[in-house]
Amino acid sequence: MEQVKLKTDLSCPHCAMKVEPILKETKGIVDYSIDLAHPDKLVSFSSEGADIDALITNIKKAGYIAEKL
């Protein structure tokens, strides 16, 4: 299982709520956390073969920036 961290521009709990369905719907994501207190607004998750590029694209479609660290 791969541990993945994404740097984002999420700024508030409402932003996190808009991204959570994307995380829940992405096949291969086992669990996730969103740390808005971290300077990089981290989205961390365990991946079992999740398509990270597609996930980043879907987050961008929702209006946010995401890049793999």
Rank of each mutant, 00 (worst) to 15 (best):
S46P: 00
Y32Q: 04
T8A: 05
D53V: 06
H14M: 02
M1S: 08
E25F: 09
K5Q: 15
I56C: 12
I56S: 12
G28A: 07
T8K: 06
V19M: 06
C15P: 06
S44T: 14
D40C: 15
I65G: 04
A37H: 13
E2I: 09
P39N: 11
I29S: 01
A16M: 04
V19T: 05
K68P: 02
S46Y: 07
E2L: 11
S11W: 01
I34L: 09
S11N: 13
I52Q: 06
D40T: 13
S11F: 09
S44Q: 10
D51C: 04
D9W: 08
I22F: 09
D9M: 11
D51Y: 00
M1G: 07
P39W: 10
G63H: 03
K24W: 08
L10Q: 01
L42W: 12
D53G: 14
C12S: 06
G63R: 03
A37Y: 10
K41H: 14
Q3S: 14
P13Q: 11
D51G: 05
G63Y: 02
I22Y: 07
I59D: 03
P39G: 11
E48N: 14
F45S: 06
N58K: 13
K27N: 12
S44C: 12
L55Q: 01
I56H: 08
M17K: 07
Y64I: 00
T8R: 03
T57V: 04
K61L: 00
A37C: 12
V19K: 03
H38Y: 15
K41S: 15
K27M: 08
P21Q: 14
K7R: 15
H38V: 08
V4G: 04
D31S: 14
K27I: 09
I34W: 05
V43S: 03
E20Q: 15
K7H: 13
E20K: 15
D35C: 02
G28K: 04
A37P: 02
A16K: 05
M1R: 03
E2K: 14
E25G: 11
V43M: 07
I29L: 01
V30A: 09
N58F: 06
K41M: 06
M1I: 07
S46E: 11
C12A: 04
E20Y: 11
D35S: 09
D53W: 04
I52E: 02
K41Q: 11
V4E: 03
V30M: 11
V43P: 00
H14L: 05
G28L: 04
P39I: 08
I59A: 03
T57M: 07
S47I: 01
K68Q: 14
D53H: 10
L36R: 05
F45Y: 02
V43T: 04
K5R: 13
D35N: 13
K27L: 09
D31A: 14
D40L: 15
I59W: 07
D40F: 15
I29A: 04
A62W: 03
T8D: 01
I29H: 00
I29F: 00
I56M: 14
A54Q: 09
A37S: 15
S47Y: 02
Q3H: 15
S11Y: 07
T8I: 07
H38E: 13
K61Q: 00
F45D: 04
K41R: 12
A62E: 14
T26Q: 14
L10E: 03
